[in-house]
Design a protein around this nucleic acid. Structure first.
Lengths: 145, 145
DNA sequence: ACAATTTATATCGGATGCGATATAATTACG
DNA sequence: CGTAATTATATCGCATCCGATATAAATTGT
């Protein structure tokens, strides 16, 4: 591949990944709006629904985000009453996030989101498996710090 | 799959897509900083390097973005001197974007970006083909408007 | 013990990205 | 022909994201 070709949009992997991520986000937004959640708030809640209680640090790892991105987001989730945020007693640098009763209740309503979207069959079951394997390889790779 | 499983982060397609897109963005940023471009400005310039001259409307389609996202971005690229933005004479609603000489020169320096990243081999050649096919199917799908 | 380093968050500023809404130009149509 | 509908942008406000930098607490090394 020569220099010219290297700069063609169609030869990039980054570009369609970025475009698909944006497109997925746009599809989720109207559904999440009914729950009063943004997309990042939604995936954050997903971790809480699985674990009930996590350190901010573990959340950062689980979501592949940076701590500063989560700081504000957690405050917003706290204002909405879905989580409690408190300094850990054991390690006063650390922050613990705990699911509240309201947060637990939200889960019941949230089920409709993956249900609705699963019915749209963007990919076949086999393609989904393939796609997730590739995405995982990219996520685990150590090229992005 | 029951309701509980449906809300596991590990069963989502959206989540790793979103995480990978963010990770890719983070990897590009330091390289693009040397060119004085942000990621979206970079992909916009890619279209210009291919076509020399486009309508804003066509740019919106090519980049899978919304017009309002591009309006500000184009002004910034214009301030940097890489493009000229003008109302079309034929259709005064429409805006034409034209690559400038400085924009053309930028291309020479930009080649280093895909070159550097290609050397990092995030995926094998075969996986890249597979991945792009899946991404394309998702991009072409009519579920996201 | 205690100075130096590391770790976990918080703050700030810059750049998106989008929906909702507004505006101006063009097209459709009765 | 003139009004209604459509199209292409522009504005505004909100919610991310991130890098750089700051701060406080814990850990390490001597």
């Amino acid at each position: 591949m020569d220099d010219h070709e290297m700069l063609l949009l169609s030869n990039q992997v980054c570009f369609p990944t970025y475009a698909v991520a944006n497109k997925i986000l746009r599809r989720y937004q109207p559904l999440l709006k009914e729950l009063g959640l943004t997309y990042t708030q939604y995936v954050t809640m997903m971790v809480l629904w699985e674990r009930e209680r996590v350190k901010e640090k573990d959340l950062v790892e689980a979501l592949y985000l940076k701590a500063n991105t989560l700081t504000d987001l957690l405050k917003k989730l706290e204002r909405k009453g879905y989580v409690a945020v408190r300094r850990s007693a054991l390690d006063k640098r650390s922050v613990e996030i705990v699911l509240t009763e309201a947060g637990r209740e939200l889960k019941e309503r949230a089920v409709s989101v993956p249900k609705t979207l699963a019915e749209e069959h963007w990919l076949t079951d086999e393609e989904i498996v393939q796609f997730k394997e590739l995405l995982n390889k990219l996520l685990k790779g150590d090229w992005g710090k």
